[in-house]
Design a protein around this nucleic acid. Structure first.
Lengths: 349, 349
DNA sequence: ATCATTCTTACAAACGTTTGCAGAAACTGT
DNA sequence: ACAGTTTCTGCAAACGTTTGTAAGAATGAT
């Protein structure tokens, strides 16, 4: 089926040595234009594709990068992976993907298994402990995404600033008391979001009550909504959009109007956020951009450029609040100017 | 950083030859228990991991499988990939992932680029033409997912039967006239869904009007809803859930009640389908199962078992209608028994 | 004790590349 | 015409495995 056409076949047809064929591809400027032409022609005619296994055996480079994600079913990660894969292809890297199924042990195991066939691996929202992380990082070049450890290269979404934007937005609308529905306690993102929230709360004179922790999904949002309402807040900031969607659903079910009775803000800006009614105000995470940044960081590291820039291994990439229809000034009276901004709203009654 | 510990190092430490080390791993029964023990001990002490590039160079097998998807951002595909990756790992395969960005040319190119470092590739919803497909299939073992070509191995979701279930469901509710919002004309899934719909329409005495084609997304659903209403149908079957969500949104916006005024059915059963209000009746596609099936098909093919079973290369995997709150008997009068089935519905007025 | 048989292990040749080294050819300036 | 450069190409040795062949040791049958 797959008839292996090797460098030797090409060499024979072009009547040159194998080294010339090899060089025609990897160091074209070293071989005379006319012969190079002849070689390339022969290669094309034969359908030659270099065997990367053989190449990597001698060069030590594989031109592959590994990617580990906790759960592909979480819409956040495919988006990151998409960014990674696009940027990787630009630098002629292919990507190896592994799903750790949220299992910290499996996570480390997968990285070890990959190690030999990749030049480095990007670990998204690493769940494993610091000890494992340290060990793994000693055997393979790593880039962390949304996780910080020692001074391992990392790209970190500036989610704390996203919190600031959310609070500032709510404060500007006139809110003075809001709830934060906390996510998984071990999550770096959750810590950052909470930290940012506290800082901003003080700065803008908003009182924040922290509830939870909750699981970062729709059902937890249903549960959390009641608790938030009982806390008598005018606005709810959920750990992520899935939770926020749950909150929206439950509030609606209880006959409370969003944003008239209570404002809701999420994190992530998943596709659904703009499709739901009312559309969700949320902090957009730069998923694709971060994926790209992670690849760049890894490529730099592999090229030895990592240490050049004074140990500046951790890049922060900005987040942005997307204001939609789920936030408004507090209190029942609905000003007309707000009606105009939620044309899809069902709250006409 | 990555200190290469080779089979030679292990051999030296265990005081045996390299071949014995190799065989201790690949054909353990051929080496005496005592020496094997010594070898494994040495390997563990040194942290030896076989270099797969070197191995594949000689064996011709890579233990990798390639996966090509049109668009990772479409929630359908991560789910398939998850199934693939889980099943692949069970058979000690790692997966290579590539996103073709819906570009048929890039699709073929990616497969060629992968070819040398994988044993075979799974192409999901292939967008490329038959000619390219033929050419590619001659250079690499392929398994198609939701695409049929000649007698290439394929796993096909029985989406036509899903259509049948949807129509039968609507007929049982008393519907006699419904719309199908068609998806991309070149899509195999679209053809199948339409085919199944026509068949079932005749069998169950339901009149189906076909509208479209539309893009398979939310915005197209907004657009399509009005057209369907103008066609005076009592039920709408959308090409996929995203479109159905758009339909729901637009109907709501126009003051029409779902399911009281019109019933809506989607395809795919994306996570959102059960979170929205009213929750969406939809035909669940066996995404993970299909991913697994594709891997099995590929593994069989690679083991040479492919031809044994009489050319039965194309497996069909069943779909299932999930009845939720977006379908009900036609007409305005709402029977009480239906109120009970949509507790989350906002339609209390 | 001898021979045939089975076990166990080592040697060395592959696999398809890349690359250091050196030789050949073509220029250059005198 | 000659030595000194530069440009181009080929030879052969790696890279880390697997595996066919064969040699030595141990076993069993005669």
């Amino acid at each position: 089926m797959k008839l292996a056409v090797t460098v030797h076949d090409v060499a024979r047809r072009a009547e040159v040595s194998v080294s010339t064929v090899s060089r025609s591809f990897t160091m074209p400027e070293l071989v005379q234009a006319s012969t190079r032409e002849r070689v390339l022609e022969a290669a094309r005619a034969l359908g030659y594709r270099p065997n990367r296994a053989a190449r990597s055996l001698i060069t030590g480079r594989t031109a592959n990068i590994g990617v580990v994600v906790p759960d592909l079913a979480n819409p956040f990660f495919p988006s990151v992976v998409k960014g990674i894969q696009a940027r990787a292809r630009e630098s002629d890297y292919a990507i190896f993907l592994a799903d750790s199924e949220e299992d910290p042990r499996l996570e480390a195991e997968l990285i070890y298994a990959m190690a030999k066939q990749v030049d480095g691996v990007i670990v998204c929202s690493a769940r494993m402990g610091d000890a494992d992380l340290k060990r793994v990082s000693e055997s393979t070049p790593l880039v962390l995404l949304n996780r910080r450890y020692a001074n391992l290269p990392a790209v970190l979404m500036d989610t704390a600033d996203g919190s600031r934007q959310a609070v500032q937005h709510l404060a500007a609308l006139g809110h003075t008391r809001c709830a934060f529905l906390s996510g998984p306690p071990t999550s770096w993102s959750n810590k950052e979001r909470r930290r940012g929230l506290r800082l901003a709360a003080r700065a803008f004179g908003v009182e924040v009550v922290e509830l939870g922790p909750f699981a970062p999904n729709f059902d937890a949002g249903l549960q959390a909504a009641d608790i938030a309402i009982a806390a008598e807040v005018g606005a709810i900031v959920a750990f992520n959009d899935l939770m926020a969607l749950g909150v929206l659903s439950r509030l609606n079910q209880r006959g409370l109007s969003v944003p008239d009775d209570v404002s809701v803000v999420g994190f992530d800006d998943i596709a659904m956020a703009s499709m739901i009614t009312p559309s969700l105000t949320t902090v957009a995470m730069p998923t694709e951009a971060s994926g790209r940044a992670a690849v760049e960081s890894l490529v730099d590291q592999l090229a030895g450029r990592g240490d050049a820039d004074g140990g500046q291994h951790q890049r922060s990439v900005p987040t942005q609040l997307i204001v939609r229809a789920s936030t408004a000034p507090p209190g029942h009276p609905v000003s007309n100017q707000w009606d105009g901004r939620k044309p899809l709203s069902r709250k006409g009654r």
